[in-house]
Design a protein around this nucleic acid. Sequence first.
DNA 1: TAGCCTCGAGTTCT
DNA 2: CTCGAGGCTA
Length: 703
Amino acid sequence: MSESEPAHRAAELRAMLQQHAHHYYVLDAPQIPDAEYDRLFQELEAIEAAHPELRHDDSPTQRVVGGVLDGFVAVRHAVPMLSIRTETDTEPSGAVAFDARVRRELALTEADPPIEYAAELKFDGLAMNLRYEAGVLVQAATRGDGETGEDVTQNIRTIAQIPRRLKCEPPPAVLEVRGEVYIRRDDFEALNERQRALIAEGAKNEKTFVNPRNAAAGAVRQLDPAIAAKRPLSFFAYGLGEVQGWGSDNSALPATHSGLLDALGAFGLPVSAERAVVQGAEGLVRFHAAIGARRDSLPFDIDGVVYKVNNRALQQRLGFVTREPRWAVAHKYPAQEQMTRLLGIDIQVGRTGKLTPVAKLEPVFVGGTTVSNATLHNEDEVRRKDVRVGDTVIVRRAGDVIPQVVGVVHDSAAVEASRGEPFDLYQRLSGQCPVCGSPIGREEGEVDWRCTGGLTCPAQRKEAILHFAGRRAMDIEGLGDKLVDQLVDGGLIRTLPELYTLGLAKLCALDRMGDKSAANLLAGLEASKRTTLGRFLYALGIRHIGETTAKDLARHFGNLDRIIEAAEAQLLEVNDVGPVVAHSVRSFFDQPHHREIIEQLRAVGISWQETEGVAVAAPDAIGIAGVTGRTFVLTGTLPTLTRDAAKELIEAAGGKVTGSVSKKTNYVVAGTEAGSKLDKANELGVMVLDEAGLLALLQGEMA
DNA sequence: TAGCCTCGAGTTCT
DNA sequence: CTCGAGGCTA
């Protein structure tokens, strides 16, 4: 009796775990919390450890079994895994053409009713053959060349969604289920997140994955199933291979494809819910369009849809042409990812001097257009992806319009060994700006390299002019990049004010510039002279001053001279202006060259409405006590007051207490063991008080 | 001190 | 649109 007790409990646990796993993975509706599942799982593990004879091949605890393989064993498919014909046509006519072919083959006329189709998704994963004998999973094999694949049973057993025993009684003698192993997008993101963490911790042999498909392919081909088990693989069934004894003489085989999928679902196999039974070409077209519209929001990648004649008897009548069934077709959407070759890495100079690496690609058609350039953002990014000239890379252009290099395709070891050098921006440029030859530099802690040439650099000058002329800035109509290229390269324009001294004669001498366009530009320049302070400030292109901040400054100060004269402390009064922005503004106006340009721009007639500004009253000069509206930072331990008490006192007096010292900080109140905040205060010249000093200040305010 | 939120800057192709 | 930086806040 004492022997049968654990056996009974083990069987019970196995049944419960299988049931819950099915709800969790297949129906996506867990019935118990994960922790409870884990507890049951561990209980079963414990029983099986104590009673090895109770271990079953189809126990949930046996999903990871066996050791590392030396290689994969070839498996000859009992029924070949055929490819299906792919409609490359991305228009709806692909569906129409298929329907027409089917009707022709069946010798149907227009008088006959529409054909019924099963429409489903074409997953972007790996085709797999699962062989169940007497209801138990005995083998999983990849597609290979269609005739012979590889035995990956150990890895596939780690996929919890795939039942080790079919839920049917009695089970078919042999049932081969065909389907796709894939990785969900969210699982993929989480996986890469984990990989990045491992790499950050210094793990040598880890890497991030380029896309879910590659990650899935890598996992399936892992020799060590323990590694495969850590990859979040999923599975959808979509067809059959060899079948024996499903009912007597396979009589229980459903008559339709849709019925077949329903049956597989009932056996506990995951079947996609994104499928439909539709009538005729019209139904196919609708399905294609509906899925296409939702493609980006599906939880997994697909590369198209598949249409199958639903009735299996009709399928048999249609038969095969060479290796492809006549009764099914895949209808692809335009690829969102393509492989191509990285021809080179150019380096562009932006308005702020930022040096941006740009991938020069062998042109590929992806996401509806031909892509030949893609930004690589910065050096870190290039290194992170380890993209090198000559590599085969994957380019993606999904819903987000802008193409990006997703990563490198790592193929044969030979190719791997002969790769180019890792990207080193400084070395590539020999430390010089590719346009003007000025030295390049990188600020401490910044990612970006910059050309130090400033406006002497033609690239920056061009960008500065374009920015000045931009729609949100001075809005000069008729001044585009081609024209700016000509003006700067031809030496007609060196500084912004010179734009306004352009004459008709000079303009007409330029290539492709007629009287009309020249007159348009001059009119555009004239019209731009009447502007606002905010636009003008923004147009100057001061670092960190975008449209919003420019407007804030304009509103706060009301007129330009006050801004030019403002000390950093006054600039800090402006909303969202911190030390960096304040410093940037201050140093811009400190350059005589910039003041000169501003004078000249005013001289040519640029003007705006000046106001009083809505600045709060100018703060008291340094040294005069004040608490209201001031910012305090507390650091260290005060002799009598607790932090909270000190805070309360300051706030009661109208002051503000923040956590970190910045130029916006008016006072630092330091006690004993004050650390870096005190150093910072000294560095920034912020007034430092002790407790007595604080109390004296507060007294003064109250009095 | 970390994390949130906003802003700035750069980006592709037709 | 995305990323990084700056500013602010819990």
